[in-house]
Design a binder for these strands. Structure first.
Lengths: 338, 338
DNA sequence: AATACTATTGCACACGTGTGCAATGGGACA
DNA sequence: TGTCCCATTGCACACGTGTGCAATAGTATT
C-alpha cells in the first residue's frame, strides 16, 4: 500500500496524496479529508526509507551504551536512562538506534563515523569513560551529542544535581533533629565525590556548626566504608548520624556499626547516596538520595532536539534528585527510647 | 559522496560501481579493485535508505524492552541481554531499533504493527508479562519473534536452563561434602520455581537420599526466606546447607541464621539462585547460580537470523548457567573447626 | 576467416516519496 | 463580458541504489 495506490483509489495523483498526508495548505480541504480517510481505512503507513531518502532527514537518534563487559558503575540506572530516552524520542516520532561500546569498538570504529553512516541526527552516550580514545573526535563532532554523567568541553551534559542532593539528605537529617552529622567522603579523584563533600562542608558552616569531626574518606567501596566507620568510632565524640558519599560505603558503615553493637537507626542514623539496588534489600533499608534517571534521559533528548532545531540550549542540565526514605534514619529524640 | 561520484572518478557508470562494491562476478577484477580503492580513499559509505528502498530489506532488528515504570524483576540482566543482542546484530551488519513497552503502549499501538511500519526483519521482547493484551497477536505474527524468559506457543524462546543450574549448585554442595541439604522453594504459581524444585527432588533421589526435610516454600521475597528459615530451624534435625530457589530468599535465610547465632558459612552453608546484585554486596558474599545473560541475547539474535534465512531453528534454546562462587559455602568438615 | 560464445559494461527502469513549476478552472472585479 | 488572480491539481524530476537486458568487444572454435 503506497501513496500511488491511494491516489488511484481517490482518483488523483500521488502528489496530491503526498501533500494531503503532510497537511499541505495547497490542497483543498475536502480532498484532503477524503484522502486521509482512505489512508486511514486502508491502514496505510508511509515508507520511511523513501521519505528519508528524499527529505534527507532520518528522524533517528543514536544511543551508545557502555558494554557490561567493561568495568562500569551504572548499576540499574542504564535501563532507566534508556527508558526516558526511548519515551521522549518515540513520542516525537523519532526512532532510536542502539549501539554498545566495547573497548574493541572504541579502537576500531569511529562512533561519530557510525552515526554519520546511519544518518543519525543526534546521539547520546551512556557510560562514557575518561580513557576513551575518541573523546576529542566526539568533542569536535558536527552532529549534536549529549553525554550523560560525563562532562566534556563543549558538548551537551546531563547529570544529577549533586549539590541539591546532598543538601536534600542533610535537610532531612536536620529536620529529624540531628546536629552531630559525620561525613564519609569519596576519593578525591572523583569529581562527584568532591562536589558532594564540599556541599556538606558548606551546609554545616551555614548552620553555624562546621563539619562534625574531620572528614573521613573512602574509595566508594563497601570495605572502605566499613574501615572508615571503625576509625570514626574511635573518636572521643560520637555523631548521631553518618552520611556517606555513596551507598556502598553507607552499607559498609552499617555493617561496622552493627558489629560494634550499635543499632541502626536507633543508636545511629545512616544515609547514603545513589539509591543502589542493594540498599533496598539491606537491613535496615537504606535511606538515600536517588537520581531521577528517567528524567535525565528525557532531558538528554530534549537537548538534542533543541540542538537539531538550531535553538541554542544550555550545554549542561542538572536534574533534581529525590530523597528515598527507608529505615536507616530515626529522629534524634528516639535515640534513647528503644 | 555517492556511487555516481565514484563512477565519474573511475570513468564508468554507477551500475558498475554498484556491482563492484557488492562483489558481483559480472565485473572485471581489475575494475573492481580500482573502484574499491577509490571508495576506500574517498571514505564512501552507502546510503542505507536508498539501498533499503530498492532491496526491500531493512537489515534491522527490533527490541522491545519492558519499561522500568512497570513492575519488573529483570534486575540488571536487561542491559546484559541488550549487550549480547547489540553485539550479535552489529557484527552481522544489522541495526538495532529500540522500543520501550509501557502499559499505555500495550493498549494503544500494536507492537507487530510498529515492527511492520519500521520494516523490522525480526523482533526480540525483553520483560514480556503474561498480562500483556497483545500476546495472541505476537503469537500469530508473520515476522520472526523471539521472547527472552517467556514462553509463548509457537514463538522463539530463549532462557536459562534452570534444571542444569540447580544441578550445578547441588553438585557443588555435594562436592563440598554436604549431604543434609534443605531446600526453600518458590511459589507454586511460578514456572521456574517448580522446575528448580523438581530438579532438587530428583537430584536427592538419584543420590539415594531423597529430600532432606519436607520442602519449605516462600514467595521469592527476602521476608519469606527469613520466615521459612526460622520454620526450618525448628525441625528436630538440622541441615548442613540450605539452597533457596532465588537470591532474595537466600539473603533472608542468611539473616535468619545470623539472628539465631549461626555463622554462615562455618555453621551453615547457603546457596541462592539468580546472581542478583545484592548478593555481591551481601555479607558473606552469596554463592549462587548465574545466567549467562549476554549469551542469551546472542542466542535470541541467532534464532532470528536462522528464521529470517528460512532455516528451521528449534523454537526453544536453553542456555547453560554458571556457578558464581563467593563466600556463603564451606566444606562440611570445616563445620566444627572455627 | 567466419562464426559463435563469453566476459564486461552501459542503458534504462524501478523502489516510494517530496516538491518546484506549469496548467487548469473558477470566481471576482472592472 | 473580458481580464486577472488565486486556488487547486498534475507533471516531471529528484533522492541513491540495484538489476534485467541489450550492446560491445574480445576470444575460441570450426
Amino acid at each position: 500500500m503506497t501513496i500511488k495506490d491511494i491516489a488511484r483509489l481517490a482518483g488523483v495523483t500521488h502528489s496530491t496524496v503526498s501533500r494531503s498526508l503532510n497537511d499541505s495548505p495547497l490542497v483543498a480541504t475536502a480532498t484532503k479529508e477524503r484522502i486521509k480517510k482512505i489512508a486511514q481505512d486502508t491502514g496505510y503507513s508511509p515508507n520511511s526509507f523513501a521519505r528519508r531518502l528524499v527529505t534527507r532527514r532520518s528522524n533517528t537518534l543514536g544511543v551508545f551504551f557502555l558494554s557490561r563487559g567493561e568495568l562500569n558503575f551504572m548499576e540499574n540506572f542504564g535501563t532507566e536512562f534508556l527508558d526516558g530516552i526511548a519515551t521522549a524520542s518515540s513520542s516525537n516520532g523519532y526512532d532510536l538506534l542502539f549501539f554498545t561500546m566495547t573497548r574493541e569498538l572504541s579502537q576500531k570504529k569511529s562512533y561519530i563515523g557510525l552515526c554519520r553512516e546511519k544518518h543519525v541526527e543526534g546521539v547520546i552516550f551512556i557510560g562514557m569513560t575518561s580513557d576513551d580514545p575518541q573523546l576529542e573526535e566526539i568533542a569536535s563532532s558536527d552532529i549534536p551529542v549529549c553525554i550523560i554523567d560525563f562532562q566534556l568541553e563543549g558538548v551537551g551534559f546531563v547529570s544529577t544535581d549533586n549539590e541539591k542532593g546532598t543538601r536534600l539528605a542533610l535537610d532531612y537529617l536536620w529536620s529529624k533533629g540531628h546536629r552531630k552529622i559525620a561525613y564519609i567522603g569519596g576519593p578525591t579523584v572523583a569529581p562527584v565525590a568532591m562536589i558532594r563533600e564540599r556541599c556538606y562542608q558548606n551546609y554545616m558552616v551555614e548552620k553555624g556548626l562546621g563539619p562534625f569531626l574531620e572528614i573521613f574518606r573512602g574509595d566508594f567501596t563497601t570495605k572502605s566504608g566499613y574501615a572508615q566507620t571503625l576509625d570514626l568510632l574511635r573518636s572521643e565524640k560520637l555523631p548521631s548520624a553518618i552520611m556517606a558519599a555513596n551507598d556502598y560505603m553507607a552499607l559498609g558503615s552499617v555493617k561496622a556499626l552493627k558489629e560494634k553493637g550499635l543499632r541502626v537507626p536507633q543508636d545511629m542514623s545512616v544515609v547514603g547516596y545513589d539509591n543502589v539496588l542493594a540498599g533496598e534489600y539491606a537491613d535496615p533499608g537504606l535511606t538515600t538520595v536517588g537520581q531521577d534517571s528517567t528524567e535525565i534521559g528525557l532531558s538528554a533528548v530534549r537537548y538534542l532536539f533543541d540542538k537539531i532545531q538550531n535553538k541554542k540550549p544550555p550545554l549542561t542540565r542538572l536534574i533534581n534528585p529525590c530523597l528515598v526514605l527507608r529505615d536507616s534514619v530515626s529522629s534524634v529524640h528516639n535515640k534513647d527510647v528503644p
